[in-house]
Amino acid sequence: MAEPQPSPESTQTKPLLELEGVWKSFGGLVVIDNLDLAVNENEIVSVIGPNGAGKTTLFNLITGIYPPDSGAIRLDGESLVGLPPHKIARRGAARTFQTLRLFLNMTVIENVMASQYGQTKVGIARAMLRTPGMRREEREIRARAEEKLAFFGERLMGYRWDQPAYSLSYANRRRLEIARAMATEPRILLLDEPAAGMNPSETHEITELIGKLRDDGGYTILVIEHDMHVVEGISDRVVALDHGVKIAEGTFEAVATNPRVVEAYLGTSAAVTK
């Protein structure tokens, strides 16, 4: 027997988010098929794939809407499987939604304040008595909310804070969702189609923003995106899914030109003629 060599993996830093052999089926339909996925600290990984590839299901599995049928999901080495969504959020995985799901009955800043619930403590009795501790905490929550909103430049500043969220434009709603996710103090941000429905200049802006989130905010980001310009602009690594199977992984150039990916998007004949 040769001396045990340190495997290449063990010399690397452990991935922040790690999925191992994850399966999920709804009835007879396998939606996620034996998926392995790793996202390293401070990395931006994009998940692409045609409609129905299982991208949003992947996010739902990570955030605990439903558990995987089998396989492991770990955040910073600790398993997330079986935890309720609010505990997963408190562990440090926060997401946005493809179909926006802001709290439209609340103001802009309240949305960002509400998502700090998991980080705060003051109970109902102290809140009602307006103890100094409660007031201090309220001030801190508001200050943190303002800090998150400031990340978006002029877009969500000043007079907008106390406007109801439903008065925001579509693009600003997308920004607010990101701010709300940031307020949970996550280790990893899961962005579900952040550029969906945006015009070209807004798309360009969101591309820069995602880079800034990583560079200045220090977030690790897993993003689902259909807009290939965005994917090209932000990704350290791209993972392509089709029918729940990982069909390609690597740099944007490698994945975008991978025949299986082209086939998944455009069909067999297109792949052949290409």
């Binding site: 955030t63 605990g64 809407i65 309720p84 969504p85 609010h86 997963i88 959020a89 408190r90 926060a94 997401r95 939604f97 799901r101 802001l102 709290f103 439209l104 009955n105 609340m106 309240e110 949305n111 304040m113 509400a114 998502s115 700090q116 619930y117 998991g118 980080q119 709300r180 996710a181 307020a183 949970t184």
Partner: peptide
């Protein structure tokens, strides 16, 4: 705030760390 968030969208609220 947690009550209003939960009333509006229970699932989204839970994913924002609200029990």
């Amino acid at each position: 705030k947690a009550m209003r968030a939960t009333a509006f969208d229970q699932e989204a609220a839970s994913m924002m760390g609200i029990d």
